[in-house]
Design a binder for these strands. Sequence first.
DNA 1: GGAGCCTATGGCACTCAGTACCCTTCGTAA
DNA 2: TTACGAAGGGTACTGAGTGCCATAGGCTCC
Lengths: 249, 249
Amino acid sequence: MTDVRDEGGATAAASGPGPSGKTPMREVLIEAAFQLFMEHGFERTTVDDIVARAGVGRRSFFRYFPSKEDVVFPEHERCLTEMSAFLAASTDDEPLDAVCDAARLVMRMYAANPEFSVQRYRLTREVPSLRGYELSVVHRYERTLAHYLRQRYAGDPNGALRAEVQAAAVVAAHNNGLRAWLRGGGHGDAAKPVDQALTFVRQTWDDAGESTESGTAPTPDDDVIVMVAPRGAPMWRVVQKIEKTLGDE
Amino acid sequence: MTDVRDEGGATAAASGPGPSGKTPMREVLIEAAFQLFMEHGFERTTVDDIVARAGVGRRSFFRYFPSKEDVVFPEHERCLTEMSAFLAASTDDEPLDAVCDAARLVMRMYAANPEFSVQRYRLTREVPSLRGYELSVVHRYERTLAHYLRQRYAGDPNGALRAEVQAAAVVAAHNNGLRAWLRGGGHGDAAKPVDQALTFVRQTWDDAGESTESGTAPTPDDDVIVMVAPRGAPMWRVVQKIEKTLGDE
DNA sequence: GGAGCCTATGGCACTCAGTACCCTTCGTAA
DNA sequence: TTACGAAGGGTACTGAGTGCCATAGGCTCC
């Protein structure tokens, strides 16, 4: 039962002990909780165990974390706020680019603390209640992205639907890239797989017809394009070529 | 405290009292629970209240439902099984069509009991723990679709990623259509908004380049196509025209 | 027809998360 | 010095979920 207060080296998060020297109770609790979760697992660790190790009162735990699950995801609340702010300030021409960049904020939060992120990843995979919690967090990110897209697509027929689908696609792609990085133990650059995955999404809608509606510049109606391509060429090459032709003029 | 056992008219689900005449306890519990949820709300109804109204022992509740939330989603387990079976038996050429059809199974389950579905929808919107439960159910559908797609795309570079993104897109679209129907009070045909939403997803990947990889039949390399289109035409029209040209021969 | 058995149900006691309420302490401003 | 507000502690309670055992009803096998 080592009292963990005022110890350094918190696995937990960025904000360590301030210049005052005293570690804030929030950090103390996160540190104690993760020690115990690693030793005995999430479910076999009670809140009483955590506060005992942290050397604080039980009631204090629930002052800092509304539930036992919250202590595992200490930075998501801040990250959600950042994402909202980022999108509100976004001046990106292409809505999809803006939400891809917004998704990268989450990736960077994970990448800022690889060891912590990987520990949490492993924990989350095997504890149902943590999975559930994570789903709700992911859902809030998705709602934030969808809300932004809905505003940007306001007026479009199917705008709300496109917003939902693109938000879901971006989140799925981001998570796919992020999980690849986490499965690999958090070594290397998290941005790489995530960028790759997001590029895939971008290309999907670049290639798709509707991108012309808000993407490439409109061209006069009475004009025509003539396109010649090898018959075996995959459709995306054909589209690429058309788009290039249009862009060149 | 009316005992609800052996009463008819369960709002709940399909399988009413069998030929034996005795309503199965599962149905009795669902009926009692929904009565109370409608009267006092989900959170202010305890499991003790439910079993009291159902006239059964408290322990029996947890034999039929692993948690209080489960009683609100009594048919999802069966529907998930059906979805897996459907996909396993699917012989669809186009993987995306198969998962769209699989998603429609869920819509039909909702549509089979409009009143019950709308009640649940309203309940779920305002109770956080039910929201969380619903997210986990939706996630399981998404995993099922993604699993199928991953197998179908095995070997493709980016196959796993495409599977994730498409599964997420299909689920988002399906839910968008379904929610529109639920918001409208469950009147009219649920299939209509869902089909419309799923068509949107289909078109996204029809228009996108990659559909050629597994979609249209390959054509000889040394041949060419010549395509003429009005310049102002949206890209998906252009692609549609190309595909039509290819298909005609 | 009774012994053995299996399944469905009830009852009880327990753990643990989360909450309401109230108390103490300490630093600070008036 | 007093007043006050923020931070933390303590206690008792509610309610979900679990483990264990007892009971009842129906079944088969002898």
